[in-house]
Nucleic acid binder design. Structure first.
Lengths: 223, 223
DNA sequence: ACGATGACATACACGTAAGTATGTTAGTAA
DNA sequence: TTACTAACATACTTACGTGTATGTCATCGT
C-alpha cells in the first residue's frame, strides 16, 4: 500500500524524526546513515528523501523541537504575573531542564545535541539555529537579572555579563552531565534541581539572605 | 628523503598529532579524513598508518594529553603543603581550566573533545579513558570536600554527591562555553575564573562567610 | 660495505553512503 | 470515472574514505 492520506503522511514524517533520534543516540549523527534511519522507521530511503531535502535538513528538523523549547521558555518568562522577579529568574533558569524532565523526547534531543553531534559542517546549519535561540535566552536572562537587582533581590554591584556566563554555563553543564550516556551512576537531577539553582543564586544575593544550601537528603539513584 | 632518524620520526609523530587537532577543529573528528590530516602535516597517509594503527588509535592519542592534564591536576592536589583545605579545593577546581589557559594545545584538545567529537563508536575508546580520568577527579574531589567539611570551612550538613555533581557540572559548563567556537562574544574566563569559583563555593560555606561575590569590573572581550 | 630494517610514499581493492532517476500505487479533485 | 499527483519503493550512479599491499631509500648495526 502506498499513497497514504495527509494525516498518515504526517505521521510518517514524525516516525522518521523519532527513528532518526533513536539512531543518532546509538551511532551519533555523523555515523548514522539514512538507510539505518529508514529501516528503524520501517520505511525505505525514498521516504526519507521525500520528506526531507537531505540529511542536513533532517538533522535540522530533529533539533527544531529543542530550539522551540528554549524559545518557549523565554516567551513564557515574559508573561508570568504575581511572582517576584527572583522567582521568575529561578523558574527561567530551570525552564529548559524542566522541559527535559517532563518530556523524554526533549531529553533525547538534548542528548543527541550535546553528546552525539559535533560542530563539523554536517550540523553547522542546525547549530546556527541553536545559537540564535541561546541568544534570545541570554537576552531575556539579562533582563531578568537587571529586574531582580532593581527589586533589591540581588546585589547591585554584580557584573552582569559574568553572572550571565556563569549561570548559563552551570545550567548547561548540569544538563550535559545529567544526560551523559554510558555512566554507571545517574544523578537524580530532578530531585535536586531546585536546591542547586538556589545555591547558584546564593552568592549573587545580599549577604543577609538566608536561603538554605544543598543539604543532606536524597542519594543519587542507580541506573 | 625517506628514513629519518628516531629523533625526527618522533617529531613526525607529533606533527601528525598537531595536524589532526587542526583538522578536527575545522571538520570535526568524524568528517576529518586521514588524507586531510596527512596533507596538513605535509605527509602521506602512509606515514599516518605507520605511526598509528587506525583512525581510532590516532583519535585516542590526541586525547591522551587532555587525560594527562586531568590526572596531573588530581595528583598535584594530593601533595600541596601549607595551604588550607578550602584553598586546595579551589585550586583543584580551577586546575583543568588553568591548564587550558596556559597551553593553547590543551585548549584545542578540550575544544575538539567538547565540540568537535561525539560519542558515536568512532571515539568510543577515547571517551572511556576520559570517563576514567573524570572518575579519578571525582574521587579526589569527594576527598577534598570531606576534608574541607572536617576543617570547618564548609557546612557539615552538605549532600556530598549533589555538591560534587554541581561543581563538576559547573566547571565543565564553564569550559564548554568558554571554548565554544563561532560565537561573536568571547567571555574573558581567565579574568573571572577566581571570582566564579569562589561564588560557586559560597553557598556551601557557613552563612557568616564573607567572600565577595562577582562584582563589577572587567567587561567581556571581543573576539 | 652491506644486508636488514625503519620510516615513509604509492597504488590498489573494497565497502559504503549519498543522491538521483524512475517506477508504482492509491488518494483526490473535477 | 478519470486524470493527476502525493507518497512512497526500487534501482542505479557516483564518489569517497579506509585499510592494506607493495615499493623505495636512507640509516644503523656489524
Amino acid at each position: 500500500m502506498v499513497r497514504k492520506s495527509k494525516q498518515e503522511a504526517l505521521k510518517t514524517r514524525q516516525d522518521i524524526l523519532n527513528a532518526a533520534i533513536s539512531v543518532f543516540l546509538k551511532k551519533g549523527v555523523a555515523k548514522a546513515t539514512v538507510h539505518e534511519i529508514a529501516d528503524e522507521a520501517n520505511l525505505t530511503r525514498g521516504a526519507v528523501y521525500w520528506h526531507f531535502d537531505d540529511k542536513d535538513d533532517l538533522v535540522t528538523a530533529v533539533f527544531e523541537e529543542a530550539i522551540n523549547v528554549i524559545i518557549g521558555v523565554t516567551e513564557e518568562a515574559v508573561q508570568q504575573p504575581d511572582t517576584t522577579s527572583l522567582e521568575k529568574l529561578k523558574v527561567f533558569l530551570r525552564g529548559p531542564i524542566e522541559q527535559a524532565i517532563k518530556s523524554e523526547n526533549v531529553r533525547n534531543i538534548y542528548t543527541v545535541l550535546m553528546h552525539f553531534c559535533d560542530h563539523g559542517d554536517e550540523a553547522a546549519n542546525a547549530y546556527r539555529l541553536i545559537f540564535r535561540a541561546q541568544g534570545y535566552y541570554e537576552k531575556q536572562l539579562r533582563h531578568l537579572l537587571n529586574q531582580a537587582i532593581d527589586d533589591g533581590y540581588l546585589r547591585s554591584d554584580l557584573d552582569i555579563e559574568s553572572t550571565i556566563f556563569m549561570l548559563m554555563a552551570s545550567m548547561h553543564g548540569l544538563t550535559l552531565r545529567w544526560l551523559t550516556p554510558g555512566q554507571p551512576i545517574v544523578f537524580d537531577l530532578p530531585a535536586h534541581l531546585g536546591k542547586i539553582t538556589d545555591n547558584l543564586l546564593l552568592g549573587l544575593q545580599h549577604p543577609q539572605s538566608n536561603v538554605t544550601p544543598i543539604t543532606a537528603g536524597k542519594i543519587p539513584t542507580q541506573a
